[in-house]
């Protein structure tokens, strides 16, 4: 091979390698989850009934078993640990969280209350709040920098409360035609919300007030009720009516969907909520009375 040809070949190899480095695909591949096991029974062997949400912390999964007015904890092997109903005082718990001091905050629908429970101190208090003269209809609840973020189902806005439950701020995007949030999630300082019957996620930075809109394209959603992000910024949208999870990339382009309607393990009947924690996807299925755990 002549010297010129050799140089040309080297140049081509270097160029191709450089191009490969420049155009290297970002690690945005959506996870491919597969079914692992289900959380379906409390320690007393009774089946869950209309579970509506979960809360994951310190290696434990807390299931809000709404139909039975109780909370049930599980380990990550799917074994039930304890159940708690505050001495029969819970009335339709919907969502919960444990704050840094281990105290519980719950939202209840039947009495429409925000419930504070300090198990160690044997304390249970119910609160009602008002916003613009209306009783706040308590829904999803999140914890951010020692403060509570509560979604008011009636206004579709998020209330930022301090521990004394003073309303510090009302959070909603300054965009036209905003019709309220249906689900909210916190990622760092960003509060993300899924709009009511909408096809967009709206992000609000709780520190700077900046806003982002992620329009979901490529598929017609019917009743999106919950969403979640994975580590690669892919968005997972749960459609209760279509009984499927739709995955969109970080730009909102539809990638694929999975899940099937049914009663058997891994199938869903009336799914209500999803959560991704580390490498696991939790699907709260109200209709089948269980939480399906999917893993990588």
């Amino acid at each position: 091979m002549s010297r010129v040809s050799q140089e040309l070949l080297i140049a081509i190899i270097v160029f191709t390698f450089g191009l490969g480095v420049c155009l290297k695909p970002k690690p945005c591949q959506a996870y491919k989850f597969h079914y692992l096991f289900s959380l379906a029974k409390a320690p007393d062997d009774t089946p869950l009934w209309q579970p509506m949400s979960i809360f994951v912390q310190e290696g434990k999964i807390y299931v809000v078993d709404t139909g039975h007015n109780r909370l049930v904890s599980f380990n990550f092997k799917g074994e039930p640990l304890k159940e708690f109903d505050a001495g029969g005082q819970l009335k339709g718990p919907m969502y919960m969280l444990r704050d840094k001091r281990g105290r519980l905050w719950l939202t209840e629908r039947l009495d429409n209350a925000l419930v504070f429970i300090d198990i160690k101190a044997h304390k249970l208090r119910r609160y009602t709040l008002f916003f613009k003269g209306h009783p706040v209809v308590f829904d999803k609840i999140l914890y951010w920098k020692n403060k509570l973020l509560v979604l008011d189902r009636a206004s579709g806005k998020v209330l930022l409360l301090n521990e004394a439950l003073d309303m510090e701020r009302v959070i909603y995007p300054q965009i036209r035609n905003f019709v309220g949030f249906f689900d909210i999630k916190i990622r760092g300082d960003w509060l993300w919300g899924l709009e009511n019957m909408g096809h967009r996620l709206i992000g609000i930075n709780l520190v700077s007030g900046k806003e982002k809109i992620l329009s979901l394209k490529g598929v017609h959603l019917v009743l999106p009720v919950a969403f979640e992000f994975d580590q690669n910024q892919n968005v997972y949208i749960l459609d209760r009516d279509l009984k499927k999870i739709f995955i969109f990339d970080e730009k909102g382009n539809f990638r694929y969907s999975f899940l099937k309607e049914g009663f058997r393990l891994g199938q869903v009947h009336y799914p209500w909520d999803i959560k991704i924690y580390k490498d696991k996807l939790f699907i709260v299925d109200e209709g089948n009375g269980r939480i399906d755990v999917w893993g990588l």
Binding site: R109, L110, K157, N196, M197
Partner: peptide, 16 residues
């Protein structure tokens, strides 16, 4: 009527 919305599922579709 407001109390009829205090259910696990409701048609409170956001917005005062």
């Amino acid at each position: 009527e407001m109390k009829t919305f205090y259910k696990f599922h409701n048609h409170l579709l956001g917005g005062y």
